[in-house]
Simulated assay, not measured.
Amino acid sequence: MMRIGLFLLTNLAVLIVFSIVFAVLSRVFGLSGVFGAGGLNYTSLAVMCLVWGVVGSMISLFLSKWMAKKSTGTVVIDVPKNGTEQWLVDMVARQAKAVGIGMPEVGIFDNPQPNAFATGWNKNNALVAVSTGLIHTMTPDEVEAVLAHEIGHVANGDMITLALIQGVVNAFVMFFARVIGNFVDRVVFKNESNSPGVAYYVTSIVMDILLGILASAIVMWFSRLREYRADEMGAKLAGRDKMISALNALRPAEARPDTMPEAMKAFAISSGQSQSFSIAHLFRSHPSLDDRIAALQKLH
């Protein structure tokens, strides 16, 4: 639940910042394009929310590789120092060529738990990184499958698609939060002036939080879907048996604590999902390993 909470808080922080900035600009500069004699201008509001939502997500996307390196301590392999590093670079190069994308940066981060992630703002400027735990505990065939899974994320354009979905979802949340805020302000609190009252701003912020939590379920649904697609690509590039073996090797081990930063777990190949279903399942970034293996076993 800590991982889920931190993800939601990060996204809600964007919405709350928007609420505060929007409130200040409305009070200080009037924002006559959004509020007029007839109250809220829905067209202007929709445009503003879309711009804020998408631009915020795009900024996060462009900074994703830099933030991933800093948060995980990933060291990029510029010049391989040993046979293992050379093998990793060569394997990624072969797989990238097979799917027709540019050579990603290849890195290693210190984490005793076997894990890996891919990020970057486009297919030809990505980063694929693996943990020290993955290198030390998995067989070469399993590491090959994990790399193929991450290359699948890059080739499928998952990073930019996820950012766009998050941006559009945020835009809808911002828009409807303010529509509800306007309704409460004018109908419940009987504000008949051309300017929004305090009730508008308070309600908008509260609805940003509530709608933001509900909207996160949509983003997490896509995140789970992209894991299945990346597993399928991993099976295509490395072989289904290797991909299944790699997923089995990712099962959480209490003896190897996972030090992957919470903000990066949605991008990792494993986030320690349990099989049981609950409301929290709607907010999980990954399907359970059992579900992923079952999906691979159905492939022909």
Rank of each mutant, 00 (worst) to 15 (best):
L15I: 03
T119V: 02
W52A: 08
V92S: 04
Q273P: 06
D110T: 07
N194V: 15
C49K: 13
I16W: 05
M233G: 09
N156R: 15
R94D: 13
F189I: 06
A294P: 04
S57H: 10
V130W: 02
V76T: 14
G152Y: 11
D141F: 05
V79F: 08
H153E: 04
L88K: 01
S195N: 11
P252V: 15
L289K: 08
T72R: 04
D185F: 14
A171Q: 11
L164I: 14
H136R: 05
N170H: 12
V17G: 04
V106Y: 03
A263N: 08
V51P: 12
V106L: 09
D231C: 12
N111H: 00
S71C: 07
G212K: 01
I4V: 09
I213R: 00
M1S: 09
L40K: 00
D231Y: 10
F183S: 07
Q166S: 15
K236H: 10
G197R: 02
I205E: 12
A155S: 14
S285I: 04
G73H: 03
E144V: 05
F62R: 06
T10G: 13
D110S: 14
G83C: 08
I279F: 08
I77G: 03
T203H: 05
D231I: 05
S57A: 14
E262Y: 12
R240W: 12
P196M: 13
G83D: 05
V179C: 05
V89N: 00
F62V: 08
D158H: 15
S26N: 11
N11P: 01
L63T: 04
T139W: 00
A253W: 08
M207R: 06
D158C: 12
N124C: 05
E262V: 13
R94K: 14
F283Q: 00
V14H: 02
T137Q: 13
N125R: 14
V179E: 09
S44G: 15
G234A: 11
L237R: 11
S245Q: 10
V89C: 05
H286A: 00
Q86C: 01
S274P: 09
R224G: 02
A217L: 07
M58K: 04
I209E: 15
D141P: 04
N111V: 00
F267S: 15
S245Y: 06
V168W: 04
T119Y: 01
P140K: 12
A118W: 00
L225E: 10
